[in-house]
Simulated scan of single mutants.
Amino acid sequence: MAGITIQDGDDGGIRTFPFPVERSVSGVGVQVGPMGEGRTWHAEAPLERIHRIDFHIVMIFSDGPVRHMIDFAEYEATAGDVLWIRPGQVHRFTDMSEYRGIVLAMQPGFLPRATVEATGLYRYDLPPLLHPDEAQLAALRAALAQLQREYEDTETLPLSLHTAVLRHTLTAFLLRLAHLAASSAEAARQQADTTFILFRDAVEQGFATNHSVSAYADALGYSRRTLVRAVRAATGETPKAFIDKRVILEAKRLLAHTDLPIGRVGAAVGFPDAANFSKFFHQHTDVTPAVFRAELR
């Protein structure tokens, strides 16, 4: 990705920073507070450069838009969005003065194993950027506000009980967050299914004249990137490969079951120039149209 600067670590790679326990109230394995300038994970961690962290970050935005890079993909978050970064993911902040909202940082091992599994803390297949609806957002904010109050209250309970309450309150928040992440992934899958079906039908109608992925995307009202993701999720291949396979299938049918001249077969599948058709067919089948027809007869 253009513009990405690699931050060198001691071994020449991207540096990984640990959870800053010393910056937590009472030294517990969780932090909650406002986003903005002055917040950092480590004195040697320049947030505007690529780095890894070995803990979880959850940011709920109250303003935006803000662009944030996670695993070399750019995400744009705005007011009401949630960004969940998991341990080991490569990421980079933009100007910290643009970040507004509440951020939660959580150390691996702070929660028991059963809770970790129930909340899907290491589901790297789930999307990092979440868009809760109004009710979901209100519930998340309320749960996080309660967690922040418990986090900052170091007077009413001894440390052992304070930590136990934090774990339970954090679990309640994470269960809501995990449900949102899982349902968002399912909605994205359904959207991808719908997008692919529309694309598949459009190709079936137009492959004889239209071989352009961008043209299909424009006609369907999707970005090229959205179309690529949907087709890859459904078929494991690119939209261009899907189109080409349909063109080749039709060409094979015409070569096998009709006596049309090869030039006419090419024209019927969108290649008015016979030489270009023969080249295309050979690239995808390793034989020329003439050889393919001869082998069948």
Rank of each mutant, 00 (worst) to 15 (best):
M106Q: 00
R123W: 07
A79V: 07
F110R: 03
D10I: 11
L260R: 10
M59A: 15
Y216I: 06
L161E: 15
E22D: 13
Q191A: 15
M1D: 07
A275Q: 12
M96W: 09
D286P: 00
Q283N: 10
V30Y: 11
Q136A: 14
T288N: 02
A118D: 05
H51W: 13
R100F: 14
L83C: 02
I262T: 11
H56Q: 07
V28I: 12
R232N: 13
I6N: 01
L249Q: 12
D95Q: 06
P128D: 11
F72H: 15
R15Y: 07
E134T: 13
V287Q: 06
L254W: 04
L111E: 03
D218I: 01
L159E: 14
Q190E: 13
L296G: 04
T94G: 11
R189S: 13
I243Q: 11
N210W: 14
H131A: 07
V165P: 00
R149W: 12
R200V: 04
Y151Q: 05
P272A: 07
V82M: 02
G27L: 05
R224L: 05
W41C: 10
L249W: 08
Q89P: 09
V30L: 14
V32W: 12
R176G: 14
P87V: 03
L227R: 04
Q191S: 15
F271R: 06
F271M: 04
A188E: 15
R297H: 02
H257C: 06
P108K: 00
R123T: 05
V28R: 13
A233Y: 10
A118I: 06
L161P: 09
T258F: 09
L177I: 11
R253A: 15
H162L: 05
A215V: 10
T195V: 11
A275G: 10
K252E: 04
P158C: 01
A208F: 02
W41D: 09
Q107K: 08
H51S: 13
R149H: 12
G221N: 03
G88V: 04
I6L: 08
V82A: 03
D54Y: 12
S26I: 06
W41Y: 15
G9D: 15
S184I: 06
T226I: 09
Q283D: 11
E76T: 05
H162R: 13
T226W: 00
A215L: 14
A105W: 11
D54I: 05
T285K: 09
A172P: 03
A290H: 01
G263N: 10
G101M: 09
A290N: 02
F242L: 10
Y122Q: 01
E250W: 04
G12P: 13
R225M: 08
R113Q: 14
A217D: 03
H257Q: 06
F110Q: 03
H42V: 08
A182T: 10
V32T: 04
L104C: 06
I85C: 08
F277P: 01
G101D: 05
V291G: 01
Q191G: 15
L170Q: 07
A290S: 08
A142K: 13
D8K: 01
K279E: 06
L47C: 11
W84C: 03
Y216F: 13
A294C: 00
V269H: 09
A118F: 06
A181K: 02
H42F: 07
R225C: 05
L254N: 00
A43F: 15
T195D: 00
V165H: 14
A267V: 01
H42P: 04
T238A: 08
A251L: 03
L121M: 06
N210H: 11
D63K: 10
T209C: 04
